[in-house]
Design a binder for these strands. Sequence first.
DNA 1: CGGAATCCTGCCTGATACTG
DNA 2: CAGTATCAGGCAGGATTCCG
Lengths: 132, 132
Amino acid sequence: MPTMTAAQRRAAAKAEYDAFVADCPSRQLLDRLSDKWVTLALVALEPGPQRYSQLSRTMAGVSQKMLTQTLRTLERDGLVSRTVTPSVPVTVTYEMTDLGRSLHRVVGMLKVWAEAHMDQVQSHRLEYDALL
Amino acid sequence: MPTMTAAQRRAAAKAEYDAFVADCPSRQLLDRLSDKWVTLALVALEPGPQRYSQLSRTMAGVSQKMLTQTLRTLERDGLVSRTVTPSVPVTVTYEMTDLGRSLHRVVGMLKVWAEAHMDQVQSHRLEYDALL
DNA sequence: CGGAATCCTGCCTGATACTG
DNA sequence: CAGTATCAGGCAGGATTCCG
């Protein structure tokens, strides 16, 4: 093997890292699911099928770009189904699939946890900040 | 009330939005917890107390900046405790608090879900991509 | 209505150097 | 060892505009 240039070494390290990640699907998927918009979208879809504009209102603060992008990846991963009704104007509804609902059970617990422990977190923050 | 300029209207909207968020602690905390490094750190700390350098190795791919930043916010929120042993060189260990462990139970389920459903997600992706 | 395309501003990352 | 500081670069994400 000839000596590697810095660029070649970086590329090799990158390839190794990617290969490692590919062998660790839980890490990949975990990173994907640990996204604020993914979590929020699943929580927003819990009441039932909803239209695009309704979701954008429920998920206050989301940009159209991130909403569309999040819904696309959720659809691609089979967590959400997208239904287009060719009316004028067109109507698009999003709905959780069975797979999405099974994930929602876990994500929902995250929401419950956050609501239940918010006061404890808040008091810890005040205590921590007081020591500065 | 005088007419508002566009800039004033934006500022008012921003203030309203911030106030709304402040009244919705679950949304705030949910956004905080839906972070890939937060999730990964809690998973990494599951086996027990660990040192900084050990964590940086376990959480492959994290930069020192993000590792330190994540650990700081976790400490501030009372989810992780930081212990400094004044040896030479100094030893710093991080450990989940009881509050952190209660959150880990939920996050751990996310990890389990990801591992259990990775193949279903993968097949949905292939199917979705085939339609392009 | 439900997006796609564009531009543009931050934040994250990576690399490096320095402290206690 | 466990950080802090700094700077370069890339890319996620927001705002805006336009189209079927």
